[in-house]
Nucleic acid binder design. Sequence first.
DNA 1: ATGGCGACCGACCCGGCGGTCGGTTTAAGT
DNA 2: ACTTAAACCGACCGCCGGGTCGGTCGCCAT
Lengths: 205, 205
Amino acid sequence: MEKHLKSKVTINRLCYKGLDVFAQKGYHNTNLNDILRELCLSKGAFYHHFKSKEDFFVYIVQNLVAQKIYALLVEPLSAQEDPLSAIMESLDKALEPGKSNELIYGFMLGDFLTELDGKQEQISAYLKDILQMWEVNMIGMLKTGKLDGHIARHIDCEGVAAYIISSYLGMRTMKMNHNPKQAKYQYLQQLRHYFNSLRPTAVRA
Amino acid sequence: MEKHLKSKVTINRLCYKGLDVFAQKGYHNTNLNDILRELCLSKGAFYHHFKSKEDFFVYIVQNLVAQKIYALLVEPLSAQEDPLSAIMESLDKALEPGKSNELIYGFMLGDFLTELDGKQEQISAYLKDILQMWEVNMIGMLKTGKLDGHIARHIDCEGVAAYIISSYLGMRTMKMNHNPKQAKYQYLQQLRHYFNSLRPTAVRA
DNA sequence: ATGGCGACCGACCCGGCGGTCGGTTTAAGT
DNA sequence: ACTTAAACCGACCGCCGGGTCGGTCGCCAT
């Protein structure tokens, strides 16, 4: 039974380190040797647990990334009655300069998609699935929010969700070097302006 | 003198095809052989004109991409007195499903940056320069627009510019597969809402 | 103890691709 | 006409990195 445990530990070490390196360098730029050297593991160990580099990556995406996205960005949307406040708060939290510095899960989704779309359709399908999970959930919340009077009736919820996610993903590309603190503040500030334009009282423009 | 001309023609063919392939497949995924085969040129021809793949790429970015960005997204900002209308119109035009289908120059800037940042600092510096040219220009226009009463006085122009560009870049990542017509419409619609929240009359929210 | 199997090792293979280099063609100068 | 150098050719190199494979070690069941 200790065998089984050791296996799990190794797989976990591989995945977390893999996520780290993939997030930093992208899929193609990452080579297994580097990961393995840092973990003091061999090629054999890797290919004992994973079928290929692609298999490895997909495993990471479907487990670590998807879970984190859900916990950070999807699930919190149901916490409040007002969807715009809920979105605001979830993004605020998601942009908190986290523990393992710079591992902002929403961002890397966009990065991977950008890199792999076109080529590697297989993989990007999984990535798109995750993004879509986020999107449809947000749309749903916006729609109920509209019924509850938190959002003006003429607003296109699909468009709003797409716009929010777009700005969130694009922010990473823009503000990579700058200090994250200020970038976050600026971003949330503008988002707040935008949200105000969606409120029922702010109709007529 | 015909020699010189022929050289220019070859360089042009290489660059346009290169831009095309780079935009589709990204920097690392693109290999020179493919480009050369399609153009019926040899390795020798390529390395006669360019020092390396990186040199080639930078040349394309600094010439074709930078010029196009300027013509499409920077220069039009000065065309109107109201910066928000000018930005709106420039993005509208930039998103027009263009001639050589799918060659949306603003997008590929973001794509390249996403792929190359971290690794390839050299190249991404050039990319960032172009983005920044766009950004500072937009900020300038917003500030004069504020003085002219087109924008509310409490608005943070830097934040607005960053937010606009972010949403523009991020939109590509999100809406890659969907029909561009609808995506464009949705995007511009939301941008309009956002812009309304920046107007002086729309203050108080 | 012993057989077996799962975890792991690391030398090796091999294809792809960036880059090189000696050679050939062709246009331009004299 | 002869030279010169440019544009261009394409076989070749060498490295890098994903993937393979025969082998070792040690836990566990019988």
